[in-house]
Amino acid sequence: MRLRQRIRRSQLYRSIIRHPAPKDRRTRTAVVLTNLVLHLHPVAISRHAVRIGYTWCLGGIAFFLMLVETVTGVLLMLYYRPTATHAYRDMLELRDVVAFGMFREIHRWGAHAMVIIVMLHMLRVFLTGSYRPPREFNWVVGVLLLLLTFFLAFTGYLLPWDQLSMWAVTVGTNMAGATPFLGHEGPGSTWLTAGGKPLITPHSDIRFLLLGSTQVTETTLNRFYVLHCIALPLAAFAFCALHFWRVRKDGGISGPL
């Protein structure tokens, strides 16, 4: 006990953790106000909002799963090379050789769980009427986050570079080729011409933009890898920050007026 107090009083400890131990109302408030992670929360909150049956912690679990995906994703990046020669072999290595290679499983099932939880979170927000004013813009941000979740999961699906992933992505991106006006198989694509030549060809349509090729090849693997590991996570974290900020600014967690 005396050791603990000495540690708490030491210059080192007090330089890192500014607030006193959370023992009474004042110090508990101080914890939430001074801690970087906890300051996302208000200091006090209605009793109904901490009931499990109201939120089922769905938004928090979605964000937690996103953090799990980030950590396991970084671990996977240490072993994975997004090239046609290496990608599949690195998968086999992760499965058979790497110690605690289980983080691939955590990453995959965590991704599935995240898609499910984000959809359920949307259902919860709808059923409690929390999308209604004044939170309407945050609902829009939430729909964007749902889309980002889908695209994150979709781009990650290609990376194992096995039959399942390659053909799933082929099926998924073939639909982009049917975009009206902008896909080479889409209606109205022949209407767009420049100087008498068709503007939308298999080499210049929206599907080509997505794949970097006319079919799923190594270029696609690289493109999806960059999207999956850099572009989409950055966007998702940015929108998450906005989402959390707006929860606070729109009056905290929803409750009856």
Binding site: R28, V31, L38, H41, A44, I45, S46, R47
Partner: peptide
């Protein structure tokens, strides 16, 4: 139920929510 008097009372985030 969420709007009843007892449910509208504030509780501290530390420890009730954390």
């Amino acid at each position: 139920v969420e709007g009843q008097h007892r449910e509208r009372e504030k509780v501290l985030v530390w420890p009730d929510l954390v």
